[in-house]
């Protein structure tokens, strides 16, 4: 049912067994389907990272640019071609780390694009270094004694704008994830969907998880669904928006 959105000849994907990125990719395609969108009405723009490889699997015109620069590429694309639904699909290191400056300014300009940010709390592709999103105490390749820093407040960055759409969800909550993506795409202006995703190989195992299942069960246990709120608590998933 979502087959037409993928270049299936390129499967299997590059992602590790147990990786959550594929779940997010699949729900994104389902959202397209439910919104009744044709392939030629959509474009995906990715940066660099495991998540960044998503663009290449979508069966439409897509871009896989420089590390951290998916948002400005998408902004240029949207301004030149306003009819397209332009979607950034990329990692937390890409969007919030190296590309952080664009995450301040593109929402300020209220660029009409949707950013789907795969937050696996690490730099997956390069082997699991500390990301700005890593938890305090996280043991990574560049924080062997545990991170000393509080993770970046992505919600705060988005909510700082005059108008905003911010959703947080996880790859365990697939129906909610799809709802978030759909509503984000329907929002006129800059919309942001943060998807908490399990990277068992380069992050989870270093935090004491044995497999993807354990990480997903933790998402199930730890995250509470919230609605009608002005701001999500750290353990909440939901949508906050201001028109």
């Amino acid at each position: 049912m979502t087959e037409k959105y993928f270049k299936q000849e390129l499967f299997p994907t590059i992602w590790c067994a147990g990786c959550g990125i594929g779940l997010a990719v699949k729900e994104t395609a389902k959202a397209f389907k439910e919104l009744g969108l044709d392939n030629n009405q959509i474009s995906i723009v990715s940066g660099i990272g495991c998540s960044g490889r998503a663009a290449g699997y979508f069966n439409m015109d897509t871009i896989h640019g420089c590390h951290g620069r998916a948002i400005p590429v998408a902004e240029g694309l949207k301004r030149a071609n306003p009819k397209l639904n332009v979607i950034v699909f990329s990692g937390d290191g890409d969007i919030v780390g190296i590309g952080g400056n664009h995450l301040i300014h593109s929402p300020r300009r209220d660029t009409d694009i949707t950013v789907i940010c795969i937050n696996n709390q690490t730099y997956g592709l390069t082997g699991g270094q500390l990301a700005p999103t890593s938890a305090e105490g996280a043991v990574t390749m560049t924080s062997p004694f545990g991170s000393k820093y509080h993770p970046v407040n992505i919600q705060g960055l988005i909510l700082a704008n005059k108008r905003f759409f911010y959703a947080r969800t996880t790859v365990f909550h697939i129906d909610h994830m799809r709802k978030c993506i759909k509503e984000a795409m329907q929002f006129k202006g800059f919309s942001f969907v943060e998807i908490i995703t399990n990277c068992v190989e380069t992050y989870g195992k270093r935090q004491g998880y044995n497999n993807a299942y354990e990480m997903l069960m933790d998402y199930k246990k730890n995250f509470k669904m919230a609605s009608g709120k002005d701001r999500l608590e750290d353990n909440e998933i939901g949508i906050v928006r201001k028109e």
Binding site: D61, P72, E75, G76, N81, H102, R109
Partner: peptide
């Protein structure tokens, strides 16, 4: 003419790449 005073030069070059792919000489 589509015009953006970008946040930095990196954003600017990446925007013109996106715009060119979108169909605009940039």
């Amino acid at each position: 003419i589509g015009f953006v005073h970008a946040e930095d030069e990196i954003a600017a070059i990446n925007m013109v790449i996106g715009a060119s792919l979108g169909g605009a000489k940039s």
